[in-house]
Amino acid sequence: MTLINRNTTRPPRSMPVGEIREALRQLEDTVAEQRADFDAAGQLPDELFDSLADLGLFRLFLPTALGGHELSALDFMDVVEDAAALDGTIGWLVGNGGGMGRVGGFLSETSAREIFDDPKAFIVAGTGGLGKVVATDGGVRVNGRWAFGSGSPHGTWFSPVCEVYEDGVASGRKVLVYAPRKDVFLHDNWQVSGLCATGSVDFEFRDVFVPDRFVHDFQPKPSHPGKLYRLPTLSIFPWTVATVPLGLARGARNEFLRIASQRKRRGDSLALAERELVQSELGRIDARLAAARVYLRQVMTDLLEGVEAGADLSPLRVRFRMGCTFASESALWSLDRITEIAGAVSILQRFPLERYERDARAAAKHLAMSSVAYINGGKLALGQELPLSGY
């Protein structure tokens, strides 16, 4: 496949979701050829990143008026799941980068265009920490360090969570700020066992000036119509990554199907595909993944309907976070079963199963998929008081 010239200056065109998904499938051979080099570099090759950018995969939620795809939440899920089935790093970066396209629905048009007129625009989110913001003439001064800056090596803008300080005292007000790459210091500390090529290093702001037009509340007032931009920030963040483990489980399942008709366990005369135990396990895996996927889509649908109706979102948000966690747990359970029936081939680095498993375990460590969600779900069912935040 022909990769994209990094000097391209034209923003990607908006495409129907089916066309985006087909274009992702066309990258399969390229990814397979380059995957072995991902981990050593700790980031995607520039040419592959540019191919993803050229498809507009980092502007999935960006309004079409600003050159984005403006996908629905459910179409977004389909695309991210496809990307993760292709490769965990790609799924993670498409989820994070494509999800951050939503900021075009919060900033002024002028500010949003300053970011997204760059066809390679990728906004790195900073939720793994809390920075310090102090007001100054025309803007704010920002200091802080944030962990897990996914996509930092290719990041063009960085958007961390901060707290506003007044007279040296934390005010409790949280904001999001935006600064270009030139103002940000990256720490080379992403040495991990899974999602190795996401480049999720720490990044730091050292007394960075941010103009007022690049600052807004953590729960912003939308500048663009649409239910998506009115979703709670603590719900839209999890949505951008919660489907990644499901995609990884699907990718592992498909890889197992590819090898099952040829491979035999040592001492067994039947290929894996001919064994009833394997057939039974695959049936269970398909049922569990399908159930988790339907549940996740339903709780997001319910949440969107609640936003539209102006309903009390607390119970909907609790159930939504349970859906995120259940999807992750179901993916890990499925991967456990797949690697068990596959045998020793699942630990060999030259086969994709090994990578799918460790990427999924890394993704599932994200706070968005914490088992704390079940505690809140239980409290909700029992009619007990819910915590004030965290979901």
Score class of each variant (00 low, 15 high):
residue 199 G to F: 01
residue 213 R to E: 15
residue 198 T to Y: 05
residue 216 H to E: 11
residue 198 T to R: 03
residue 197 A to D: 08
residue 213 R to K: 14
residue 220 P to C: 07
residue 221 K to A: 12
residue 203 F to T: 03
residue 200 S to C: 12
residue 215 V to Y: 04
residue 206 R to M: 07
residue 202 D to N: 15
residue 219 Q to R: 10
residue 206 R to S: 10
residue 223 S to I: 03
residue 199 G to R: 02
residue 202 D to G: 09
residue 212 D to Y: 08
residue 218 F to C: 03
residue 211 P to M: 11
residue 210 V to Y: 00
residue 194 G to T: 08
residue 216 H to V: 05
residue 208 V to L: 03
residue 222 P to H: 06
residue 221 K to N: 09
residue 220 P to G: 06
residue 223 S to P: 04
residue 213 R to I: 08
residue 198 T to P: 07
residue 216 H to I: 08
residue 222 P to E: 06
residue 218 F to K: 09
residue 211 P to D: 10
residue 199 G to W: 00
residue 217 D to N: 11
residue 214 F to A: 00
residue 198 T to I: 13
residue 214 F to H: 08
residue 194 G to M: 03
residue 208 V to H: 02
residue 213 R to H: 14
residue 203 F to G: 02
residue 201 V to F: 12
residue 217 D to V: 04
residue 205 F to C: 04
residue 205 F to H: 06
residue 210 V to T: 04
residue 207 D to I: 02
residue 221 K to S: 12
residue 200 S to I: 03
residue 209 F to N: 00
residue 210 V to L: 02
residue 196 C to A: 15
residue 198 T to F: 07
residue 202 D to I: 09
residue 224 H to M: 14
residue 223 S to Q: 13
residue 198 T to N: 08
residue 214 F to I: 02
residue 202 D to F: 14
residue 211 P to A: 09
residue 219 Q to C: 07
residue 202 D to C: 13
residue 205 F to I: 03
residue 221 K to D: 12
residue 202 D to S: 15
residue 222 P to L: 04
residue 216 H to Q: 12
residue 199 G to M: 04
residue 196 C to K: 15
residue 203 F to C: 06
residue 196 C to L: 13
residue 204 E to V: 05
residue 224 H to K: 12
residue 211 P to F: 11
residue 195 L to K: 03
residue 198 T to K: 05
residue 196 C to V: 15
residue 194 G to V: 05
residue 218 F to I: 11
residue 209 F to E: 00
residue 204 E to C: 08
residue 219 Q to S: 13
residue 195 L to S: 04
residue 219 Q to A: 13
residue 196 C to H: 08
residue 215 V to C: 04
residue 220 P to A: 10
residue 218 F to N: 08
residue 217 D to G: 05
residue 198 T to C: 14
residue 220 P to L: 04
residue 218 F to Y: 14
residue 223 S to E: 12
residue 200 S to L: 05
residue 196 C to Q: 15
residue 207 D to T: 06
residue 203 F to N: 02
residue 223 S to D: 06
residue 202 D to K: 09
residue 207 D to R: 07
residue 209 F to I: 02
residue 199 G to Q: 07
residue 197 A to E: 05
residue 208 V to N: 03
residue 222 P to D: 05
residue 217 D to P: 02
residue 212 D to T: 15
